[in-house]
């Protein structure tokens, strides 16, 4: 099963490689990984998407907790949560295709953020599924480049992952 694990860790050089190294050394799978500092610059927030049996996920969370740099973590998929991913997608846009692409971007609530005579760059935010859906709706031949941020997530309601 797919799990989204949210991690607060010390914002120190090498912290990211400790997590990445743990996953490769123990043969765990990483689907996506995003990381950035939080409002407290001494902390980094990492969102990691992985999959595995319950036993594997249990080991992953235990092993992550064991890393000295990890302050706190939470498996978002254990409760109600929101996940978002951002995609920047550059597509070939010529002749009649330009209108069609504009309409499609509107349907998916995307924004065209860069325009040339022959291309659009569209910004789109949503769940991974929605982004996949948009890509599928496009003619494969028109896609010039896809950049995805990886998943960020947060728990619904008052529940929060915070130090102190």
């Amino acid at each position: 099963m797919r799990h989204i694990i949210s991690i607060l860790m010390e914002n120190e050089s090498g912290a990211l490689s400790r997590v990445a190294g743990l996953f490769s050394a123990r043969g765990y799978n990483i689907e996506s990984l995003t990381v950035a500092p939080t409002e407290d610059p001494s902390l980094s927030r990492m969102t990691l998407v992985t999959s595995g049996t319950e036993e594997v996920i249990e080991q992953i969370t235990k092993q992550l907790n064991k890393l000295v740099d990890v302050v706190k973590l939470m498996d978002l998929t254990e409760g109600p949560h929101i996940e978002r991913e951002m995609m920047l997608i550059k597509v070939r846009a010529v002749d009649a295709g330009r209108d069609e692409l504009k309409r499609l971007a509107d349907i998916f609530r995307g924004h065209i953020i860069d325009v040339t005579d022959t291309s659009y760059t569209i910004e789109l935010t949503g769940t991974g599924e929605k982004l996949d859906g948009f890509i599928q709706a496009l003619d494969k031949k028109t896609i010039l480049e896809v950049v995805r941020s990886g998943v960020s997530g947060i728990a619904r309601g008052e529940k929060s992952l915070k130090v102190g």
Binding site: E55, E58, Q59, K62, Q63, N65, K66
Partner: peptide
């Protein structure tokens, strides 16, 4: 060490 528990044997 919590990670030792149920690592190979439940």
């Amino acid at each position: 060490d919590p990670s030792s528990i149920s690592k190979s044997v439940r």
